[in-house]
Design a protein around this nucleic acid. Structure first.
Lengths: 186, 186
DNA sequence: GCAAGCGATGTCAGCGGCTGTCATCGCGCT
DNA sequence: AGCGCGATGACAGCCGCTGACATCGCTTGC
């Protein structure tokens, strides 16, 4: 097995996710991940840039979905409303709350992974700001709206994960945006 | 030299800063930093948790100054105004623009360092949110105000560094806050 | 069918970040 | 003078990550 079995990348991601959950991220060796996937350490690094990246494989999809939603927003929509609309589409990408919970538990356990998460969110903000500029929004407004949008996402996502209630992520995002508006008013 | 010379930590930080600037962060070895400081690699790691941390030595001071300003803000001040007041005190901590520029150039050159910077900013936001909660601000509002405040700081600091004009950092912060309010209005 | 070509994987050697452990040094205290 | 203690050195070793080259197995052109 290994050389000819299909979907090496998927097997590696699966093995990594399992091991990070079972023994913890720091206690897991890349060699162990590769072994469980029936592959070699060297091959792991051909599919993922580093030991962290395997947990963030889906982030481009989230980013593309957000950017597209901003670009496609109604021409007359104000920047904040374009971002709001975009954030509400996120619910269709992030559906499996239990999976997100497990993944987040791993990430929160290690500073190294928190750092990686933050740079992904920063890339998100940067991409959204670009999309806003493409709509003609001036630099400063674009950057601030995008950063504020990501802040809203961060807070809402955290509550979605932590919550025991059955509130929808979109709903929490809506609440967070309203609260942001309330807090910055005046 | 070495064993008895004073201020080992300072010498290490100085050597690291110089070498990161001269050859670049990735091309610099911890052993080289230690050698320039007249010390050993092992000793470097006794003073700094890792190769990145040496560039972020001053961040606790910034954080303490921000938190204190939030706590000390007028009792009747709204959360956003407390944070605004706090951000305006930052100018007294960050004075040397040329130094900040050089430091930022190094940080921006490497993803590893950008990650570290982001987690420092996240810690800032977290501390500010705590301070707001201690003022009686509810959770959601505290988190969002703190995140928004840090976003403002990020954008303003970036413009302060990049700018050729002689605009004060406090001034740029004020502008960014006003723009944030404008953008979230409605 | 078969050989050439090609992409994916294996193997090996090596660097650098980081840590544990123990020895050593220099200083202050008594 | 001797003792104790904090800071440094010396050494060994793990692990993340990379470059270089060999090997495998499938596809393609003939």
């Amino acid at each position: 097995m290994g050389r000819w079995e299909p979907n090496a990348r998927g097997r590696l991601a699966q093995a990594a996710f399992e091991l990070y959950g079972e023994r913890g991220y720091e206690q897991t060796t890349v060699a162990e991940i590769a072994k469980r996937a029936g592959l070699t350490e060297r091959t792991f690094f051909r599919h993922f840039a580093d030991k962290r990246e395997v947990l963030f494989a889906g982030s481009e999809i989230l980013q593309e979905s957000l950017v597209r939603a901003v670009v496609d927003a109604h021409e007359s929509a104000a920047p904040i409303d374009a971002v709001t609309a975009a954030l509400e589409t996120v619910g269709s990408v992030l559906m499996d709350r239990e999976f997100s919970r497990r993944r987040q538990k791993v990430i929160d356990s290690t500073a190294e992974l928190r750092e990686r998460e933050l740079i992904k969110l920063a890339a998100l903000a940067s991409a959204v700001a670009d999309a806003l500029r493409r709509r003609g929004v001036p630099d400063l407004a674009a950057s601030l709206t995008a950063e504020a949008g990501v802040a809203v996402f961060k807070v809402a996502f955290e509550r979605w994960i932590a919550g025991t209630d059955e509130k929808d992520l979109s709903e929490l995002i809506r609440e967070a945006i309203d609260e942001l508006k309330a807090v910055t008013a005046g």
